[in-house]
């Protein structure tokens, strides 16, 4: 399920980057229609979620629900159970109920034009979260709020170049890729490679897919540990693979985090626990907790203010010394 989500995300991100380029007049046409629907009182938001296919998604749902309560926004929540028709039905219901703003994570990228047009005609602004849609008409939605995977890879690479700034090379890196062809895997690989390219001492000596899972991460790392003489750094595209690989490193008699530096992406709770134990050196966050940002955007959109067409989620980089402090706040 996560793979399919990732795949959809790739396509969606590609589509969205293409769209933002030609959507300069998009926001201008919307505000007049959007403000028409407002008549004071608390804002009502209709949120159509993809489903509950992963821990990341569950945390995402929780974040939206809690943030709505905090912001005093009435939330009408619908779970599409991974089906587009359910989501379209939910959006139509939201339109009939005359909510002030609709937010949703599209299950798939295409086939949204009709229902989004209905929302636009009803004067209800739409915000996309986490995944984008593929449409010719960028005025159908106000903004897209989600992560930038290339930036995540870059942050990971920048941490590495910083950590080894004063040390002589070569630095041998092994990479555990995500599911082959998925957006997070492609982008996190590209971003990381980009960040370390400037310095010749950084060398990726082996790179294989670990399918985003612990079992595969462990299996591939065990093979790496035998086929590569000298490994200084492990870069894993998600925490689960890193956690599996850590076990492999330990079983080989080495100390993860010390003998082999471990860089990971996502920021799940288990990874923070491993970080407090010194087994992971740095985690680049991929944040599902976009509720707060979503509510802020919703308020602005409903008030008729112009918002950027693409908003990135706030994502931190957590080195080891910050892990203990951040651990209690990790909810997923």
């Amino acid at each position: 399920m996560a793979r399919r989500a990732a795949l959809v995300l790739t396509a969606a991100l590609l589509a969205s980057s293409a769209l933002t380029a030609c959507s300069t007049e998009g926001p201008g046409s919307g505000p007049a229609a959007a403000t028409k629907a407002r008549s004071g009182g608390p804002i009502t938001m209709g949120f159509a979620q993809v489903g509950a296919e992963s821990g990341w998604r569950t945390a995402n749902t929780k974040s939206v629900q809690e943030a709505a309560k905090k912001a005093g926004i009435t939330l009408k929540f619908s779970d599409a159970q991974q089906k587009q028709e359910n989501q379209i039905k939910a959006i139509r219901t939201f339109i009939q109920q005359k909510v002030d703003v609709i937010a949703f994570s599209p299950v798939v990228e295409s086939g949204w034009d009709t229902v989004l047009k209905e929302a636009k005609d009803a004067g209800i602004p739409v915000i996309l979260t986490d995944r984008a849609v593929d449409t010719q008409d960028a005025s159908l939605y106000k903004t897209f709020l989600g992560s930038d995977f290339v930036k995540e890879g870059k942050s990971a690479g920048e941490w590495l170049t910083g950590a080894y700034a004063n040390q002589p090379g070569p630095v041998n890196i092994v990479e555990l890729q995500g599911t082959t062809g998925s957006a997070p895997a492609n982008d996190r690989k590209a971003g990381f490679a980009d960040a370390i390219r400037s310095d010749g001492k950084f060398k990726i000596v082996a790179s294989q897919t670990g399918d985003f899972t612990r079992a595969k991460g462990k299996e591939v790392m065990q093979a790496f540990l035998k086929s590569q003489k000298d490994i200084d750094v492990l870069y894993a595209h998600n925490d689960d693979m890193a956690l599996g690989a850590i076990q492999a490193i330990e079983e080989s008699g080495k100390k993860p985090g010390t003998d082999i530096k471990v860089i990971s992406v996502d920021g799940i709770k288990d990874a923070f626990v491993a970080m407090t134990q010194g087994k992971i050196n740095v985690v680049v966050e991929c944040n599902p907790m976009l509720g707060g940002q979503l509510m802020e955007l919703a308020k602005k959109v409903v008030a008729g203010e112009t918002v950027p067409k693409r908003v990135e989620t706030e994502e931190g980089v957590f080195p080891q010394d910050k892990a203990a402090a951040a651990l209690p706040s990790r909810t997923y």
Partner: peptide
């Protein structure tokens, strides 16, 4: 066969 792929460094796209 899986181990061979990792040992030889066959790129994931062609695995």
């Amino acid at each position: 066969l899986s181990t061979t792929v990792y040992t030889l460094g066959v790129p994931p796209e062609t695995t």
